[in-house]
Simulated assay, not measured.
Amino acid sequence: MSSEQKEPFTVGSKSFTAVAINTAAKAGEWIKSKLGDFSSLTIKTSPHDLVTEVDKGSEMMIRNLIMTHFPTHSILGEEGVEPGAAASIKALQEASDAEYLWIVDPVDGTTNFIHGFPFFSVSIALAHKGEIIVGVVYDPNRDELFVAEKGKGAYVHGRRTMVSGEERLLDSLVATGFPTDRGPNIAGNMRGLEAVVPRVRNVRSGGSAALHLAYVAAGRLSGYWELGLNAWDIAAGMLLVKESGGHVTDTKGNPYHLEVRNIVATNGRIHDELAQLLQESDAAGN
């Protein structure tokens, strides 16, 4: 941890951030050890929405580690929720009254993991009364741990992360993701691509929302947008971006909150231009 960083959030003698870091690192290393070694593959909502026993095992590990330290806290994890947008929205609503809510994606980028494409992560966030106060994203393939605390900055390898300096969309490298549901959002996504590609330096799609957000925070991407995400895809990465000097809203420019499913995250400088372009091209989703 950088010497510039203040004391982490604690309850009693236990640091929320230390638990999040330790938990993400342990889960990530276990996931990496299972590359090419999973035995079950299950389709959730569509052939594009997949889960393995590694996702479930990772979430169980994360739950057990968190509950060991904070047995009174609540946990919202992807694999503990029925597939589909409606079930995700309902699960978040049911958990929203919790004073402390851990929001977990045990493998963000399952399709990549299944194919051996090394771009997936563990995402762990902690919300206090609905506000994200800790966010950790761990990439086990690159051994990169991105950490943010509300009001205290964001770090990777102990170094402060800062968003990129591009002032124009034309000079920017941006990223997007493709919805797993292949419903109305895919049409909006394609309209967005058609509008954005000619207006930027280039577009990437890595397949892990949490890592895309971490890359915006670290200045590797100038911006990122995606439709149809869930709280566990966004929560930790959102705090990374904000604590690195960036800006996060929904695709219509409204402030981020846990219920946001269509997201734009940028260095702040290109934010209005990107959000407006998505809206004008009917690519902002519902």
Rank of each mutant, 00 (worst) to 15 (best):
P8A: 12
P8C: 10
T10E: 11
T10P: 02
V11Q: 15
G12L: 06
G12I: 02
G12Y: 01
A18I: 03
A20H: 02
A20M: 04
T23Q: 04
A24P: 00
K26M: 11
K26P: 02
I31V: 15
K34Q: 15
S39D: 12
S40D: 09
S46A: 08
P47V: 06
P47S: 09
V51P: 01
T52E: 00
T52C: 01
V54S: 04
D55G: 06
K56A: 10
K56L: 15
R63F: 05
I66T: 11
M67K: 15
H69A: 15
F70I: 09
P71G: 06
V81H: 08
G84I: 02
S88Q: 15
L92S: 08
L92T: 04
A95S: 15
A95T: 05
A98R: 09
A98M: 02
A98G: 10
E99T: 14
L101E: 12
L101H: 05
L101C: 10
D105C: 09
V107P: 00
T110F: 01
T110H: 05
N112H: 03
H115C: 10
G116S: 11
F117E: 14
P118T: 07
P118S: 08
S121P: 06
S121R: 05
V122L: 09
S123V: 13
I124H: 03
I124M: 09
A125H: 06
K129Y: 05
K129A: 14
K129I: 06
G130H: 07
G130N: 08
E131V: 15
I132H: 02
I133C: 09
G135Y: 08
N141R: 10
D143T: 11
E144P: 01
L145T: 13
V147Y: 07
G151I: 02
Y155R: 12
R159L: 14
R160C: 02
R160K: 15
T161V: 09
S164E: 06
E166V: 13
R168E: 11
L169W: 01
S172E: 03
V174S: 03
A187W: 04
R191C: 04
L193K: 12
A195P: 01
R199K: 15
V200K: 00
V203Q: 03
R204G: 14
S205W: 03
G206T: 01
A209Y: 05
L211H: 02
L211S: 04
H212L: 08
A214Q: 02
V216G: 03
V216C: 07
A218D: 15
G219H: 02
G223D: 01
Y224N: 01
W225E: 07
W225V: 06
E226G: 11
L227F: 05
N230M: 12
A231Q: 07
D233M: 09
D233T: 09
A236C: 07
G237I: 13
G237T: 13
G237V: 12
K242F: 00
G245D: 12
G246F: 00
T249G: 06
T249R: 03
K252I: 11
K252C: 09
G253H: 02
P255E: 07
H257A: 14
L258C: 09
L258F: 09
L258H: 10
L258W: 07
I263H: 01
A265R: 01
T266D: 04
T266S: 13
G268S: 13
G268K: 07
I270D: 00
A275H: 00
L277E: 03
L278D: 06
S281V: 08
A283F: 01
G285S: 09
G285C: 05
N286M: 10
